[in-house]
Protein backbone atom coordinates (compact mmCIF):
# COMPACT_ATOMS: atom_id res chain seq x y z
CA UNK A 1 0.00 0.00 0.00
CA UNK A 2 1.22 3.44 -0.95
CA UNK A 3 1.60 5.49 2.24
CA UNK A 4 1.33 8.69 0.24
CA UNK A 5 -1.81 10.54 -0.76
CA UNK A 6 -2.07 11.84 -4.30
CA UNK A 7 1.37 10.68 -5.38
CA UNK A 8 -0.01 10.46 -8.90
CA UNK A 9 -1.22 14.09 -9.12
CA UNK A 10 -4.69 12.96 -10.02
CA UNK A 11 -6.64 14.55 -7.16
CA UNK A 12 -7.71 18.16 -6.60
CA UNK A 13 -7.31 21.33 -8.65
CA UNK A 14 -5.22 21.23 -11.80
CA UNK A 15 -5.26 19.80 -15.26
CA UNK A 16 -3.66 22.76 -16.99
CA UNK A 17 -0.19 24.29 -16.96
CA UNK A 18 -1.37 27.00 -14.53
CA UNK A 19 0.07 26.74 -11.03
CA UNK A 20 -2.25 25.78 -8.21
CA UNK A 21 -2.11 27.04 -4.64
CA UNK A 22 -3.26 23.83 -3.02
CA UNK A 23 -2.45 20.19 -3.68
CA UNK A 24 -4.46 17.42 -2.11
CA UNK A 25 -2.31 15.45 0.33
CA UNK A 26 0.72 17.70 0.06
CA UNK A 27 1.89 20.87 1.80
CA UNK A 28 3.19 23.46 -0.64
CA UNK A 29 6.35 24.57 1.15
CA UNK A 30 7.72 26.85 -1.57
CA UNK A 31 6.58 28.09 -4.95
CA UNK A 32 3.44 26.77 -6.58
CA UNK A 33 3.26 23.55 -8.59
CA UNK A 34 1.13 22.81 -11.61
CA UNK A 35 -0.69 19.50 -11.97
CA UNK A 36 -0.49 19.32 -15.74
CA UNK A 37 -2.66 17.12 -17.92
CA UNK A 38 -0.87 14.77 -20.29
CA UNK A 39 -3.22 16.22 -22.94
CA UNK A 40 -2.05 19.84 -22.49
CA UNK A 41 0.71 19.56 -25.10
CA UNK A 42 2.72 22.63 -25.99
CA UNK A 43 5.94 20.86 -25.12
CA UNK A 44 4.74 19.27 -21.86
CA UNK A 45 4.97 15.49 -21.63
CA UNK A 46 2.30 13.63 -23.53
CA UNK A 47 1.37 9.95 -23.50
CA UNK A 48 3.67 9.58 -26.52
CA UNK A 49 6.75 10.68 -24.56
CA UNK A 50 8.80 8.24 -22.45
CA UNK A 51 7.24 7.96 -19.01
CA UNK A 52 4.97 5.83 -16.88
CA UNK A 53 2.54 5.46 -19.79
CA UNK A 54 -0.98 4.12 -20.04
CA UNK A 55 -3.17 3.63 -17.02
CA UNK A 56 -0.22 3.92 -14.64
CA UNK A 57 0.32 7.51 -15.74
CA UNK A 58 -3.25 8.59 -15.19
CA UNK A 59 -4.30 11.92 -16.61
CA UNK A 60 -1.88 14.33 -14.88
CA UNK A 61 1.64 14.81 -13.59
CA UNK A 62 3.39 17.30 -11.28
CA UNK A 63 5.47 20.17 -12.62
CA UNK A 64 7.27 23.04 -10.92
CA UNK A 65 4.83 25.65 -12.22
CA UNK A 66 6.36 29.09 -12.75
CA UNK A 67 8.55 29.35 -9.64
CA UNK A 68 12.33 28.83 -9.69
CA UNK A 69 11.93 26.48 -6.74
CA UNK A 70 8.75 24.62 -5.90
CA UNK A 71 8.69 22.24 -2.97
CA UNK A 72 5.96 19.88 -1.81
CA UNK A 73 6.15 17.97 1.45
CA UNK A 74 4.02 15.13 2.74
CA UNK A 75 4.33 13.64 6.19
CA UNK A 76 3.06 10.12 6.67
CA UNK A 77 2.74 8.43 10.04
CA UNK A 78 3.92 4.84 9.92
CA UNK A 79 1.11 2.35 10.60
CA UNK A 80 0.80 1.48 14.28
CA UNK A 81 -0.15 -2.14 13.80
CA UNK A 82 -0.02 -4.98 11.35
CA UNK A 83 2.88 -6.70 9.63
CA UNK A 84 4.64 -3.36 9.07
CA UNK A 85 3.53 -1.73 12.32
CA UNK A 86 5.58 -0.20 15.11
CA UNK A 87 6.42 -3.52 16.70
CA UNK A 88 7.72 -4.90 13.43
CA UNK A 89 9.67 -1.69 12.77
CA UNK A 90 11.27 -1.83 16.20
CA UNK A 91 12.20 -5.47 15.59
CA UNK A 92 13.93 -4.49 12.36
CA UNK A 93 11.50 -6.40 10.18
CA UNK A 94 10.25 -3.65 7.88
CA UNK A 95 11.76 -2.30 4.67
CA UNK A 96 10.70 0.58 2.49
CA UNK A 97 10.70 1.32 -1.21
CA UNK A 98 10.55 4.90 -2.41
CA UNK A 99 9.87 5.27 -6.10
CA UNK A 100 8.77 7.83 -8.62
CA UNK A 101 8.97 8.96 -12.20
CA UNK A 102 11.15 12.06 -12.50
CA UNK A 103 11.90 14.10 -15.57
CA UNK A 104 12.25 17.30 -17.50
CA UNK A 105 12.00 19.05 -20.82
CA UNK A 106 14.15 18.28 -23.86
CA UNK A 107 17.79 19.30 -23.35
CA UNK A 108 17.03 21.65 -20.43
CA UNK A 109 18.28 20.92 -16.93
CA UNK A 110 15.17 21.78 -14.92
CA UNK A 111 14.62 18.82 -12.64
CA UNK A 112 12.62 17.11 -9.92
CA UNK A 113 14.09 15.55 -6.79
CA UNK A 114 12.29 13.11 -4.51
CA UNK A 115 13.45 12.26 -1.00
CA UNK A 116 12.19 10.50 2.09
CA UNK A 117 13.43 11.02 5.61
CA UNK A 118 12.33 8.61 8.34
CA UNK A 119 12.15 10.16 11.79
CA UNK A 120 11.73 8.86 15.30
CA UNK A 121 9.12 10.08 17.74
CA UNK A 122 11.31 13.05 18.70
CA UNK A 123 11.75 14.10 15.08
CA UNK A 124 15.36 12.98 14.65
CA UNK A 125 16.27 11.70 11.18
CA UNK A 126 17.03 7.97 11.15
CA UNK A 127 17.17 7.13 7.45
CA UNK A 128 17.26 8.99 4.16
CA UNK A 129 16.87 8.19 0.47
CA UNK A 130 17.22 10.75 -2.30
CA UNK A 131 16.22 10.22 -5.94
CA UNK A 132 17.11 12.52 -8.82
CA UNK A 133 17.02 15.09 -10.14
CA UNK A 134 17.36 13.38 -13.51
CA UNK A 135 19.69 15.18 -15.89
CA UNK A 136 18.94 15.88 -19.54
CA UNK A 137 21.63 13.38 -20.50
CA UNK A 138 19.90 10.67 -18.48
CA UNK A 139 16.73 11.43 -20.42
CA UNK A 140 18.59 11.26 -23.74
CA UNK A 141 17.97 15.02 -24.11
CA UNK A 142 14.30 14.43 -24.84
CA UNK A 143 11.21 15.31 -22.82
CA UNK A 144 10.66 12.31 -20.61
CA UNK A 145 10.03 10.94 -17.14
CA UNK A 146 12.24 8.07 -16.01
CA UNK A 147 11.66 5.76 -13.06
CA UNK A 148 13.89 5.93 -10.01
CA UNK A 149 13.63 3.93 -6.80
CA UNK A 150 15.48 3.24 -3.56
CA UNK A 151 15.00 0.50 -1.02
CA UNK A 152 16.32 0.14 2.53
CA UNK A 153 15.49 -0.96 6.05
CA UNK A 154 13.17 1.15 8.20
CA UNK A 155 15.31 1.70 11.32
CA UNK A 156 13.91 0.71 14.71
CA UNK A 157 12.18 3.63 16.37
CA UNK A 158 11.00 5.21 13.11
CA UNK A 159 7.50 6.60 13.42
CA UNK A 160 7.02 8.93 10.48
CA UNK A 161 8.16 9.45 6.91
CA UNK A 162 8.72 12.93 5.50
CA UNK A 163 8.59 12.92 1.74
CA UNK A 164 9.76 15.95 -0.19
CA UNK A 165 9.32 16.66 -3.88
CA UNK A 166 11.39 19.59 -5.14
CA UNK A 167 11.32 21.11 -8.61
CA UNK A 168 14.16 23.37 -9.69
CA UNK A 169 14.41 25.69 -12.66
CA UNK A 170 17.83 26.13 -14.22
CA UNK A 171 18.87 29.51 -15.55
CA UNK A 172 16.24 32.00 -16.70
CA UNK A 173 12.85 31.60 -18.27
CA UNK A 174 9.50 31.30 -16.58
CA UNK A 175 8.41 27.69 -16.63
CA UNK A 176 9.88 25.30 -14.06
CA UNK A 177 9.97 22.15 -16.16
CA UNK A 178 10.84 19.62 -13.51
CA UNK A 179 8.26 16.85 -13.80
CA UNK A 180 7.19 14.02 -11.51
CA UNK A 181 4.53 11.34 -11.40
CA UNK A 182 3.74 8.04 -9.76
CA UNK A 183 5.31 8.90 -6.39
CA UNK A 184 5.02 6.07 -3.90
CA UNK A 185 6.36 4.94 -0.56
CA UNK A 186 5.64 1.35 0.36
CA UNK A 187 6.54 -0.75 3.38
CA UNK A 188 7.17 -4.46 3.29
CA UNK A 189 7.62 -6.98 6.08
CA UNK A 190 10.98 -8.69 6.00
CA UNK A 191 13.44 -10.61 8.19
CA UNK A 192 15.49 -8.99 10.95
CA UNK A 193 17.80 -6.35 9.52
CA UNK A 194 20.86 -8.24 10.69
Amino acid sequence: MNLLVNGDAEKGPGGTAEPVGRVVGWTVRQGAPALVGYDVGGGYPTPADPGPGGAAAGARFFSGGNSPLTTLVQEADLPAGGATGHRAVDAGRVRYVLSGWLGGYAGQEDGARLSVEFRDRAGTPLALSVLGPVSAAERGNVTALVERSAEAAVPPGARSAHVQLSFTRSGGGTSNDGYADGISLRLTASGRHS
Binding site: L69, D110, V130, S135, A136, T168, S170
Partner: peptide, 13 residues
Protein backbone atom coordinates in the same frame (compact mmCIF):
# COMPACT_ATOMS: atom_id res chain seq x y z
CA UNK B 1 22.47 27.54 -4.01
CA UNK B 2 19.68 28.42 -6.41
CA UNK B 3 19.23 28.34 -10.14
CA UNK B 4 21.49 25.41 -10.96
CA UNK B 5 20.71 22.66 -13.41
CA UNK B 6 19.89 19.09 -12.48
CA UNK B 7 23.52 17.81 -12.38
CA UNK B 8 24.50 20.62 -9.99
CA UNK B 9 21.40 20.26 -7.82
CA UNK B 10 22.17 16.56 -7.45
CA UNK B 11 25.75 17.39 -6.52
CA UNK B 12 24.56 19.95 -4.00
CA UNK B 13 22.19 17.43 -2.42
Amino acid sequence: GTGGGAPFMRRRA
